[in-house]
């Protein structure tokens, strides 16, 4: 009977599932599915994974030691993607690596479908994370806290954490991922941390977010003045900045009060 491990769609969840599958079933064809998305089938055995830090660390070490840092990076990124089969692809990649003389070269074996899948997912997540380095917009809340909301397809928060950590060491800031209900929090001059399952009290934040931020209006003014009419090209704009990102980008929000023709 095929074993199917059921875990949460988080790094902690999937790493724990990989641990169980590897320890008890490393030669078998196993499934890894996510809580809330399981479609029960006959002749399968469903196993609820106990998720804990110990398993996470063990799998992290296993991959880093045997498959190398670069492969670990690809696997980690792939597991952040929005994809139901990602964990199985990673497990199969680990299995395929065992068969190689040099397991560290596993990511070069693109003739293996699972490896190709991990590779592509990793690239997809990397690209999305890269876009958010530029597309994140902060608003200033009362007390000077910078707050941002994003709606990414992948769980990009930990991919962009170091980037913003280095950029704003002296600010209190927070980025909330609406899609996955997670937040990245950085208290001034301290390391960043991740809050999952909405531990953050966003209700309370919500009221603060309504505060007017004068610089948003200034930014919109600049955004509109900088475009060259003779070269206007909305297709090109949409290729580079797809519509799905714009909801959280203030320069694409309607102005509250229509400004009169400034300066004339």
């Amino acid at each position: 009977m095929r074993s199917i491990y059921v875990c949460h769609d988080t790094i902690q969840g999937i790493f724990s599932a990989l641990y169980d599958a590897w320890v008890y079933n490393r030669h078998a064809d196993v499934g890894i599915e996510f809580v809330g998305k399981v479609e029960r089938q006959l002749f399968c055995q469903y196993i609820d994974v106990v998720e804990n830090e110990k398993k996470v660390l063990a799998v992290e070490r296993l991959i880093q030691k045997n498959l190398g840092e670069n492969t670990y990076h690809d696997i980690y990124y792939a597991l952040l993607a929005d994809d139901a089969k990602k964990a199985e692809a990673v497990f199969q990649t680990m299995q395929a690596a065992r068969a190689l003389r040099n397991s560290r070269k596993i990511m070069e074996h693109l003739s293996n479908d699972s490896v190709t899948k991990v590779f592509e997912l990793s690239r997809r997540v990397g690209n999305e994370a890269h876009l958010f380095q530029g597309f994140v917009r902060f608003r200033e809340l009362q007390g000077g806290v910078l707050f941002s909301e994003i709606a990414p397809k992948s769980q990009v928060l930990t991919c962009i954490a170091d980037y913003f950590y280095n950029r704003y060491p002296m600010e209190n800031w927070m980025i909330h991922d609406k899609t996955h209900g997670m937040s990245l929090v950085h208290p001034k001059q301290k390391p960043w941390f991740l809050l999952t399952h909405d531990q953050a009290d966003l209700q309370q934040m919500g009221s603060l977010i309504q505060v007017e931020d004068d610089y948003e209006d200034l930014w919109k003014t600049f955004f509109q003045s900088i475009s060259i009419q003779e070269r206007e090209n909305y297709c090109c704009q949409r290729t580079h900045l797809p519509l799905r990102y714009r909801k959280e980008m203030v320069e694409f929000h309607e102005r509250k009060v229509d400004r009169k023709n400034i300066g004339s």
């Binding site: 597309f135 704003y168 475009s227 060259i228 090209n233 297709c235 704009q237 580079h240 900045l241």
Partner: peptide
């Protein structure tokens, strides 16, 4: 405040696609 990346980063795209 701030840092710099050699590859450059785009923050938005104006109506002319730049």
């Amino acid at each position: 405040m701030g840092n710099a990346y050699a590859a450059g980063i785009c923050h938005s795209f104006s109506a002319d696609g730049r």
